[in-house]
Design a protein around this nucleic acid. Structure first.
Lengths: 237, 237
DNA sequence: CCAAAAGTGTTGCTTGTACACCCATGT
DNA sequence: ACATGGGTGTACAAGCAACACTTTTGG
């Protein structure tokens, strides 16, 4: 048997199997006004008209799941090169009443101040605080819960914020971000020491004087030193 | 517009999108002779004839990814009700030269002594120690690396062994399992204290006298108390 | 002066780690 | 007797959590 014949046979043999619609759903998180917010757009038709939906799209022939997710992100926020990671696949045969769709969920972290607000407005999209989410289509609530869990896991294992905060930020702003993610207060002194001990922050010679009388130094994340340190930010949970 | 019409429209609108072959690949781990082993079967045709492959299968119309994975597991090992969890999706358009296949990877943990050896032999499958893996088809090496990473992560965050060890086991056997997973020695005294502190093991009034002169008590995992404690077994890495 | 945040220090507790030590027993 | 693993205890270091305390400055 030649290689060509074998390949032929192989391709033939695939034909007996069903094909499926494959989609990506993006849980796009941002940070604004002390809250973690999720970008949702309203579904304009039945079923589930009026309910809100994650940004999603179908996977094309020639693209990977990641490429599809990046495409969706670019189309809806105008942003490239953003943090994007697989979370989990949702695949119950009846999860979408319109058709059998297998969906891969991604978490995206973006800077709300940097995204294309007009583009978002075009879609009728809206940033929802994760503490006050509206009713969502299908299994999107379950998906969002998994995505939030992923976000907490991430924030616990390493210092995040590079993708959510401005280039320069104070340690209070960073702490507020963590308090928003974990929905609990952190001791200011201990948080400062822990964050600085990780060796990923760089103090600038500029102070923010708008949020405190004394003024707080701005910090920024150091340009990735290549070696990814995975240190623990939060103990348990 | 009635709900029926809308549903119709919705179904119509899906038609413009491509469908894909969706598969599950199972990284089936077992523990035998002090080693973590992976179940692979030989590919009998080109391309990549002679190379080894993960147990996999295509997702049918009416089943979820999890159901497909359970089906593959049952077909190849004869086992039901086993530990099975999503790891990651692999979706590069050209990852399988035969056709464009999107594959979800699952990790399965099974007790080698309990599986159906005849069924495995039928498929020509073989248990490979993860330290001496053969050449594998396509991107399966990459998949296995991710799966092994998942296994370590799991073992670090909670006490595993329920799915890999016999019903009764000594603490040395449990430690040897961990040494196989992390490929490094653990201090016997410290490992014992840590494992027992997690409150998931129950000492039996039976001793194993074959592996030491003094004899060591057998332990077993307590029937799940419902509340899942996620405590850390291993610090960092 | 007071309030509020910035920033540093102290103390007690928990946990991990290395290692010493006795126990039981088959050879 | 001795080697081997079973099992417990100790001593030290690291990390966390709670909180005291000083600094700075706008109102």
């Amino acid at each position: 048997m030649t290689s060509e014949q074998a390949l032929q046979m192989l391709s033939q043999s695939y034909k007996q199997y069903p094909k499926h619609y494959v989609a990506v759903d993006c849980a796009i998180f941002g940070y604004e006004e002390g809250e973690i917010k999720l970008l949702l757009y309203p579904r304009g038709f039945e079923p589930s008209i009026g309910k809100w939906s994650l940004m999603g799209g179908f996977v094309q022939e020639d693209e990977s799941l990641e490429q599809a997710a990046f495409r969706v992100l670019l189309q809806t926020t105008g942003l490239r090169d953003i943090f994007l990671e697989q979370v989990a696949a949702f695949s119950k045969p009846d999860r979408d009443p319109g058709a059998r769709v297998i969906s891969m969920t991604f978490v995206a972290l973006i800077r709300i101040d940097k995204h294309d607000k007009d583009l978002v407005r075009e879609n009728g999209a809206h940033w929802w605080p994760v503490t006050k989410l509206p009713a969502m289509v299908f299994d999107h609530l379950e998906i969002v819960e998994k995505a939030l869990d992923f976000l907490q896991q991430r924030a616990a294992n390493e210092l995040i914020g590079r993708e959510l905060l401005p280039d320069m930020f104070t340690l209070m702003q960073l702490r507020n971000l963590y308090e928003a993610i974990f929905q609990r207060p952190f001791d200011p002194g201990n948080f400062r020491k822990k964050a600085l001990s990780l060796d990923v922050l760089e103090r600038l010679n500029v102070k923010n004087t708008t949020e405190s009388k004394k003024g707080a130094f701005y910090y920024r994340f150091v340009k990735d030193a290549g070696d990814k340190k995975v240190e623990r930010m939060v103990k348990f949970c």
